[in-house]
Amino acid sequence: MRVPSRSPGQQPGPSIPPAPARRAAAELPRRLPAVEPDLDAYRAAVADLLVEVGALAGATSTAARQVLIDQRLREPAIAAVLDATPSGLVGARETLLLEMARYQPSERSSAADLTALVRIYLLSRIDVMWWRDAPTYRTDVQVNQSADLVDLEWLRRRDLLRFRYQEQPTTLFDRGVRALRRRIRPGAAPQTAGLLFRRARREMVALLNDIAREFTVHAPAGTPPLWVTSLVRSAEHQYRLRRLGYAAMLPSGHCLGWAADVEMTWFDRFGARDTLAELLLARQRAGEVNVVDEGQAWHLCLAPGARGRLRRVYEAELGV
């Protein structure tokens, strides 16, 4: 079983090309499907698999779970998606089994149990399939210096954002201020760490602005604007999150710049959670995004086919 490297990028050292005859199978070019897989069938097959995983949740069922995963991932509806990801079906299977073997419950993790872990991993493979040719932001420096990303704070100060976010505190003083605000006004904002990088692709800004406007129209009166809890991340940061106990999958749409997480649980207090959920699922049915229920927040990834329209929207509405 291959173990994913914990290094965020290639390490320096001599480059010795492998002999072609011994090249690993994962490195060989794979023929991608001529027609994109049926995502409705994939999601339905994953839902069926999750029922069976839940029935084998006990610690004594490890072997039975592995047999189940081996069998079900080979079903055509699931295999078609996984085989179109960079690691292929075999790599996806190995990674999922490794994630399950390493799983430890954590209050920080969006994966409340093994079933949630499998759901998050498999549904997020749609992101990876869509953006299989997109380069990864491997380091924090690459995120901060990328010309493909815009500064959210610059846009916010010019009233060009329709959604809200908060930055992750980086000093002891800032953390103290955050904690004090939560004591004085509990529930005034979601319980989230905030954005480490206040940067995003222009298309993602346009998407989130569009969702935020629609949410404002349909949500009950007095509901706060859409709240974004995560956007672009570096692979370097993704590894940090994993060490802290978060279910930060790799590869990830966040590390490609095409994913965002939006708060859900906090909107229960305003009676607006179901409204937001239906708006997001409607966009998924329309083929614009992939949606993954991660509990407190829902994960969104933009579909490649919607990129051009949203880029035009950004340029027309924001003009920057």
Rank of each mutant, 00 (worst) to 15 (best):
A200F: 05
G58V: 04
L117A: 04
A77V: 01
A59W: 05
V291P: 01
R202V: 04
S15M: 12
R30L: 10
L226V: 06
P304E: 06
A235G: 01
A64K: 10
L28N: 14
P17H: 13
F173L: 13
D174V: 02
A147D: 15
R178W: 01
V217C: 06
V313A: 14
S87G: 12
D268M: 04
A306N: 07
G287R: 11
N209I: 07
D113E: 09
A25I: 14
V150A: 10
I69K: 01
L250A: 08
P20Q: 15
L281C: 10
L49K: 07
A212V: 09
E94Y: 11
T171P: 00
R2T: 12
Q71N: 13
E99P: 01
V35H: 05
E236M: 09
A277I: 11
A34T: 06
V205S: 06
S61P: 01
P17A: 14
D261L: 08
A25G: 13
E236F: 10
E203R: 09
R162G: 08
R164G: 07
I184M: 13
V150H: 09
G58R: 15
R213G: 08
L89F: 11
G308K: 14
V205L: 10
I69T: 06
Q284L: 08
L161T: 08
A34E: 07
A59D: 12
G295D: 07
A316H: 15
D133E: 12
A134M: 07
R240H: 07
A80I: 00
A55L: 13
R65P: 01
R243Q: 12
F270G: 03
A24Y: 13
D274S: 14
G176I: 05
G187C: 08
W130R: 05
A248T: 02
S7G: 09
V217I: 14
V3R: 15
R65H: 08
N209E: 14
G9T: 13
L49S: 05
R199I: 03
E52W: 06
P37F: 01
E36D: 09
R30E: 05
W154N: 15
W258R: 11
Q10P: 11
E236Y: 10
L180F: 12
E214R: 15
R108L: 04
L244W: 04
A112Y: 01
S110L: 00
R158A: 15
E75D: 08
A63E: 14
E294N: 11
A286H: 08
L231W: 06
P225W: 12
M100S: 03
A259Q: 05
W266S: 01
T171D: 00
A297H: 12
L89G: 07
A248L: 04
Q142M: 14
R119K: 10
A59I: 02
E107H: 03
F163N: 02
V313H: 11
R201G: 02
L155R: 14
A260I: 03
V289M: 04
R312S: 14
A188M: 12
V292R: 00
E27D: 14
Y103M: 06
R233I: 01
G194M: 06
S61L: 11
D293I: 12
M264W: 07
R269C: 00
P190Q: 09
G287T: 07
W131T: 00
